[in-house]
Design a protein around this nucleic acid. Structure first.
Length: 824
RNA sequence: GCCGAAGUGGCGAAAUGGCAGACGCGGAGCACUCAAAAUGCUUUUCCGAAAGGAGUGCGGGUUCAAGUCCCGCCUUCGGCACCA
C-alpha cells in the first residue's frame, strides 16, 4: 500500500469524483416510472453578478443538506437550479465596462455553473433555466397576457416612486426607508403612466392563507407579510360638501368617534384636492399651488421625519358630518396619503395623534368623545386612542369602543351615509421598468385601437440586440430608440403602431420559475399542468430572509392567479420555508469597501469544498448569521480526515452481516441513526454534524480498543458515517464509500432506519437531588421500581450528608431517572 | 413610537420543565519523534489547594424541580413607521 492511500488529500479526491458523478448523474429527477415518493426541494436561484460568494456557499450548502437527506431517505428529489439573469446590475455593469449585458450575464452564469459543479451541489443539471433566455421570458409575456385578459394587468397614470440615479420607477417594495433598495439614492415621486398587476384583488387571500403556512414558514416572515399587507377594518363615511353635488367619502377605523370629528383633511396631492382648490377663493388657490409645489419637492426622507411639523391649507370649504349635521372645515395637507383609503379623512383630534398635532398646529377644536383610562386629551396634551366609554356622542353615549363602532355603522347604513369597509396597506404592483435588460411588455400601442396585446402565436417579443442602443438611464426605455423593433403594424388594424418599450420588473420572472423547472425547455407551454399536479408545490424552499416580502409575496400572488385560471391545483407555492442567515466577517456584512471580503474561491482552495460546506452547516442554527471569524474551516478539515481514516481501518468485507457485531457499537449506530434524522428534519444541521462527530469518536475508540477493525459493527458504523457525511461532505463520503469496498454512489446508498431492538435501553443513570441539587448518581435498570429507587437514594452517604439532619418534607421519585428530596 | 425575536463558558453553540455547557474552536498537559509537523490521549464554566460554593441579562413568581413556564425591567437585533 502506498503512503498516499492513507493520506487524506481533499484536492485529489475532488478531482477523482467529479467526473464520476458527471457520468452517474445521481440526482436526475422525473425519470419515467420512478416509484419513489416525490420531494421538491428548491434553492432560491442566484443573480449572476459574478462568481459565487460566501453567501451562496452557505445557502447552497444548507439547501443541499436537505435535498441530499431526502434522497438518502428514499425520495425522488427534484432539486433544480437556474439563473435570475435579467435586471439592473447586468445593465449597470455593462454600461460601466462598455459591454453587452447579455455577454456579461452569460459569462457569469458559466462561471457560477462551474463553481456549483465543483461545490458538488446535488442539482439536476438537466433542469436548468435562465430567465433572460427568450425561451423563458416568452412565458413571462404569455402570463402577462393571461393576466391582462383577466383585468389583472392594467395601465394607469399616477405618482410613482422614481429613482433619479437608476432613472427608473420602483415598486413600493423596492423603496427602503425612502431610499432606492439598489443604489440608496433618495427616491422621489414622478407622474407616469405605468403597468400594474392588481395584487390588491388578492389582498384578503394573501393575508388569510398565511395561516395555512403557520409552523412551516418562519414566524418572522409570516409577520412581515401580514404587516406588509396591512389589512384594517372600519367604515367609509359620506360627508355632503357645500357647493358640490357629490359627497366626499372618507375611510376611518374609528366610526365610533364620528361625533368627535372637528375638521376634514384631504391629501394635498390628490385629484380631489385640485378640484376643491378650483372651487375655492383665488387666495386659497394660490396658497394651495405654493403648498403643493413645496410638498412635491420634498421626498420620503423628509416626509418620514418623526418630529416634522404638520402643515396644511384651509380651503374655506365645509363638509357636513352625517351623524350630527355639524359643519366641518376642509383642510388640505400632506399628512393624509392620496393613495390610501379615499385620500380624505375625518379628523378626530381628541383620539388620533396625527389629527391632534394638526389641530394644535392650526388651533382647531378638540372634542373628547371617548372617556378612557388614560385620562382626558385636554389635560394630557395628547390624543387618547384606547378603549373607553362614549360621551358627547348622542345615541352612542355609554357604549364602549367596539359597540359604538358597530352602532355607528348601523346608523350610517340606515341613513345611506356609510358602510363597513376595509383597506390595505398593500398597493398594486408596479411592473414597468424603463430599462433594456428585461422582458419586453407584449403590448402594441395603436393610435386607433389603443392597447393591443401581441397575439400569443407571435411570442416571444424578443429583445433587440443592445448594439447601437444607449443603455444609459435617461428616464425612458432604451428600447424606444430601437426603430426597427419598436415600429410595427397594429395586429388589430394593420396601421403603423409602436411596441410598448418598457420591460418587466424582474420579480415577474421569479414569481413562477419554480413551475418552469418542470419542463424548462418546453416550447408549447409555460409549464406542464400534469407534472405541476405531481411535483408542485415546492415541499421545501430555501433562501435568504431578504426576500421575505417582495419575492415571496409576488410568487404567492402568481400562484393564486394561476390557480384561478385553472393551471395549478394549489394556492400556496412553497409549503415549507427555511431562511438561512448571512455570512459576516468580523461582525458586519462582507464588502470590498469595508475590506472584510472573504473570497469563496480562496477558502475552497485552502480548505477544500467539503470543509467549507461542513463549516457552513456546523457553525450554528441555519437561520443565524455566521461570522467567518468565529468558525474554523481548518477544524472541519481535520474532522473530515479523521472520519475518512476510519474507512481504512475497517477490515471486514463489504456485505458482511452486521447482526453478529459488537452490541455496544451497534447501539451507538442505532441511536445515531435516530438522532441524526431528527436533527436534519428539524433543521438542526449543526446538531446533526455533532452527532456524526460523536459516532466518529466512539468508532475510533472501538477500533483502537478491544472491538477492533474487523468487527461487523465497526463496518456498520463506518458506513453510517459515510452516508450521513454525504449530506455535508460529498467528496469525503464518496471516497470513504470506495475505501469501504463499494461502487460509487454513497449519496443514494440510503440512510437506514435504526433497528428498534438496538434502541431499547436496559440500564441508565438515575440522579438524586436534594433540594434540586445533584448529590448522587446510580446505574440502575430501567425497570427499577419507585420504592427500590427511593431506598437506593435514601441509603446514599452523599445524600444523607446533604440532608444533614434536616426534616424531609417531600420525596419525589420519577423512576427510573430521578429522585428529588425536598427538606424543610 | 408600534410589532416581533433573542440574551448560556475565552469563542461558535447544545439542552421533550428533571445531571447546564453535548459537539467543536481556542488554551493547557502527555504520548509518538533526534526534533517538528501530523496523529492519538487527558484536561479546560467560574471561585477554591480541597471539601465545597456560585452560575444561563436583571428583579420577582409558579413548581419537589426553571436556561426552559408566568409577571415586570434592561440590552441587542430585525420588521413597520403620518396607512386615519
Amino acid at each position: 500500500m502506498s503512503e498516499q492511500a492513507n493520506e487524506y488529500d481533499v484536492f485529489a479526491i475532488q478531482e477523482k469524483w467529479l467526473p464520476v458523478w458527471d457520468e452517474l448523474k445521481p440526482f436526475n429527477s422525473g425519470v419515467e416510472g420512478d416509484p419513489r415518493p416525490k420531494k421538491y426541494v428548491l434553492d432560491m436561484f442566484p443573480y449572476p453578478s459574478g462568481d459565487l460568494h460566501m453567501g451562496h456557499a452557505e445557502a447552497y450548502a444548507l439547501g443541499d443538506v436537505i435535498a441530499r437527506y431526502w434522497a438518502q431517505k428514499g425520495f425522488n428529489v427534484m432539486h433544480p437550479i437556474g439563473w435570475d439573469s435579467f435586471g439592473l446590475p447586468a445593465e449597470n455593469a455593462a454600461i460601466k465596462r462598455g459591454l453587452d449585458p447579455k455577454g456579461w450575464t452569460y459569462d457569469n452564469i458559466a462561471q457560477q455553473r462551474a463553481s456549483m459543479r465543483r461545490y458538488a451541489c446535488s442539482f439536476d443539471w438537466d433542469r436548468v433555466l435562465v430567465t433572460s433566455d427568450p425561451m423563458y421570458y416568452r412565458w413571462n409575456q404569455w402570463l402577462f397576457l393571461q393576466f391582462y385578459k383577466k383585468g389583472l394587468a392594467y395601465r394607469k397614470n399616477s405618482n410613482v416612486n422614481w429613482c433619479p440615479s437608476c432613472q427608473t420607477v420602483l415598486a413600493n417594495e423596492q423603496v427602503v426607508q425612502g431610499l432606492c433598495e439598489r443604489c440608496d439614492s433618495v427616491v422621489t415621486k414622478k407622474a407616469l403612466t405605468q403597468w400594474y398587476f392588481k395584487v390588491t384583488d388578492y389582498a384578503d387571500r394573501l393575508l388569510d392563507d398565511l395561516d395555512t403556512l403557520e409552523g412551516n414558514w418562519p414566524a418572522k416572515v409570516l409577520t412581515m407579510q401580514r404587516n406588509w399587507i396591512g389589512r384594517s377594518t372600519g367604515a367609509e363615511v359620506e360627508f355632503e360638501i357645500e357647493g358640490r353635488t357629490a359627497p366626499i367619502s372618507v375611510y376611518t377605523t374609528r366610526p365610533d368617534t364620528l361625533h368627535g370629528a372637528t375638521f376634514m383633511v384631504v391629501a394635498v396631492d390628490s385629484d380631489l384636492a385640485a378640484e376643491l382648490a378650483s372651487q375655492a377663493t383665488p387666495n386659497v388657490r394660490q396658497r394651495y399651488q405654493a403648498y403643493l409645489e413645496e410638498v412635491k419637492k420634498s421626498n420620503d426622507i423628509e416626509r418620514l421625519a418623526t418630529d416634522r411639523k404638520k402643515t396644511g391649507v384651509d380651503t374655506g370649504l365645509h363638509a357636513v358630518n352625517p351623524i350630527n349635521g355639524e359643519k366641518l372645515p376642509i383642510w388640505l395637507s400632506d399628512y393624509v396619503l392620496a393613495d390610501y383609503g379615499t385620500g380624505a379623512i375625518m379628523a378626530v383630534p381628541a383620539h388620533d395623534d396625527r389629527d391632534y398635532e394638526f389641530a394644535k398646529a392650526f388651533d382647531l377644536p378638540i372634542r373628547t368623545v371617548v372617556q378612557t383610562e388614560e385620562g382626558d386629551p385636554a389635560e394630557l396634551g395628547k390624543a387618547t386612542v384606547g378603549d373607553g366609554i362614549l360621551v358627547n356622542s348622542g345615541e352612542l353615549n355609554g357604549l364602549n369602543k367596539a359597540e359604538a363602532i358597530d352602532r355607528a355603522i348601523e346608523i350610517l347604513a340606515a341613513r345611506g351615509k356609510g358602510h363597513a369597509a376595509k383597506n390595505f396597506r398593500l398597493r398594486d404592483w408596479l411592473i414597468s421598468r424603463q430599462r433594456y435588460w428585461g422582458t419586453p411588455i407584449p403590448i402594441i400601442h395603436c393610435a386607433d385601437c389603443g392597447e393591443v396585446p401581441v397575439p400569443e402565436d407571435q411570442l416571444p417579443v424578443e429583445l433587440p440586440s443592445a448594439a447601437g442602443l444607449d443603455l444609459k438611464p435617461k428616464g425612458s426605455s432604451p428600447l424606444g430608440a430601437a426603430e426597427a423593433w419598436v415600429n410595427v403594424a397594429c395586429p388589430s388594424c394593420g396601421k403603423p403602431a409602436k411596441r410598448d418599450s418598457d420591460t418587466m420588473d424582474t420579480f415577474v420572472d421569479s414569481s413562477w420559475y419554480f413551475l418552469r423547472y418542470l419542463s424548462p425547455n418546453s416550447q408549447t407551454a409555460a409549464f406542464p399542468v400534469d407534472a405541476a399536479k405531481q411535483w408542485a408545490p415546492v415541499d421545501q424552499y430555501v433562501g435568504g430572509v431578504t426576500h421575505a416580502i417582495l419575492h415571496l409575496l409576488y410568487a404567492r400572488f402568481f400562484t393564486k392567479v394561476l390557480h384561478d385560471i385553472g393551471l395549478v391545483d394549489f394556492e400556496e407555492p412553497f409549503t415549507r420555508l427555511l431562511n438561512q442567515g448571512m455570512v459576516l466577517m468580523n461582525g458586519s456584512a462582507m464588502s470590498k469597501s469595508r475590506g472584510n471580503l472573504v473570497r469563496l474561491s480562496d477558502q475552497l482552495d485552502e480548505h477544500g469544498v467539503d470543509a467549507i460546506r461542513l463549516t457552513m452547516a456546523f457553525a450554528g442554527p441555519p437561520e443565524d448569521d455566521i461570522d467567518w471569524a468565529d468558525v474554523s474551516p481548518g477544524g472541519s478539515a481535520k474532522f473530515l480526515a479523521r472520519a475518512w481514516r476510519l474507512a481504512g481501518d475497517v477490515t471486514s468485507a463489504p456485505g458482511t452481516s452486521f447482526a453478529a457485531g459488537n452490541k455496544d457499537v451497534r447501539r451507538l449506530t442505532a441511536a445515531f441513526l435516530r438522532d441524526f434524522s431528527e436533527s436534519i428534519e428539524t433543521f438542526k444541521f449543526n446538531v446533526g454534524v455533532a452527532k456524526i462527530m460523536e459516532l466518529v469518536n466512539g468508532l475510533r475508540k472501538a477500533i483502537d480498543g478491544e472491538v477492533g477493525g474487523a468487527d461487523p459493527a465497526v463496518r456498520e458504523a463506518a458506513e453510517a458515517v459515510a452516508k450521513a457525511l454525504s449530506l455535508f461532505a460529498p467528496y469525503t463520503a464518496e471516497d470513504m464509500w470506495a475505501k469501504l469496498g463499494h461502487q460509487p454512489g454513497v449519496a443514494l446508498a440510503g440512510l437506514p432506519e435504526p433497528e428498534q431492538e438496538l434502541l431499547v435501553v436496559n440500564n441508565l443513570t438515575a440522579v438524586v437531588q436534594v433540594d434540586g441539587k445533584l448529590r448522587d448518581k446510580f446505574d440502575v435498570s430501567v425497570s427499577i421500581t419507585e420504592d427500590e429507587l427511593r431506598a437506593l437514594a435514601m441509603n446514599s452517604e452523599n445524600v444523607q450528608r446533604a440532608i444533614g439532619g434536616r426534616e424531609i418534607a417531600n420525596v419525589i421519585v420519577r423512576a427510573p431517572k430521578l429522585v428529588n428530596i425536598a427538606t424543610k
